[in-house]
Design a protein around this nucleic acid. Structure first.
Lengths: 126, 126
DNA sequence: CCGCATCCTTAGAGATACTG
DNA sequence: CAGTATCTCTAAGGATGCGG
């Protein structure tokens, strides 16, 4: 796919293309954070994830995890204890995505200061 | 920052951390597509961008471009012709982000089929 | 050609309480 | 503990028309 990506035009900009949907899901507010957390911590229980991600609600956590499970990115495992225990782990597919997410995370971290500076500059112009 | 990223914990999961804001902006529906397009096509006029990105409205295009300009990711250039011409280009900062976005784009493209398969599998279970 | 302002609609997300 | 179900409400986003 490398060929098209650089030289030609491909159809990611067309609404029907599945990449659009994939990028849309990645663009979700919590997706990156969840994947990022699972990548760093390994297998986690629902409650642990919730505790690790400041500001996320049960609803959003469950919802996002369902989407990711559906896409084959995380594996959900129910352990029949009382009360029930549920764990989440990145699948191999999820791990490869985790690498890409890590790239974004690293970029954000590395360029945070430049961005803040650019904003200050922009806001104090004119 | 590589050290923390792998072994320790840093604060991207805390709401106050600027990386959260940065990731949030990247997570924006149109940001990735705009950056991706500018990366492949170079300098473009507003209308050309709009034509290249299926489904985007003038409002969202302008709005997203303003955000990106504020963050120092794109440069807006007004050429005093009649009627006015406006062009957009990635800044060096934007180009480095473009590389990271390309990684995600490539990942999405490469794993599209796996994801679609996973979804079909998930939807036809039980 | 570009983009601002306005209005309007709806999906997304929070809060809360309940079930297995 | 994990997840579902409502209910509510904001705010993102689409449509349209004006102005530089």
């Amino acid at each position: 796919m490398d060929t098209d990506q650089v030289s030609g035009r491909w159809d990611a900009n067309k609404g029907a293309c599945p990449t659009r949907q994939v990028l849309g899901r990645i663009g979700d507010t919590w997706t990156m954070l969840i994947i990022s957390t699972l990548e760093r911590e390994g297998t986690l229980r629902s409650g642990q994830l919730k505790a690790s991600i400041e500001g996320i609600t049960q609803k959003m956590l469950t919802q996002t995890l369902r989407h990711l499970e559906r896409d084959g990115v995380v594996r959900r495992e129910v352990i029949p204890t009382v009360p029930t225990t549920v764990t989440y782990t990145l699948t191999p597919l999820g791990q490869s995505l985790g690498a890409a997410v890590a790239t974004m995370r690293t970029w954000a971290y590395d360029h945070m200061d430049e961005i803040v500076a650019a904003r200050n500059d922009y806001d104090t112009r004119d």
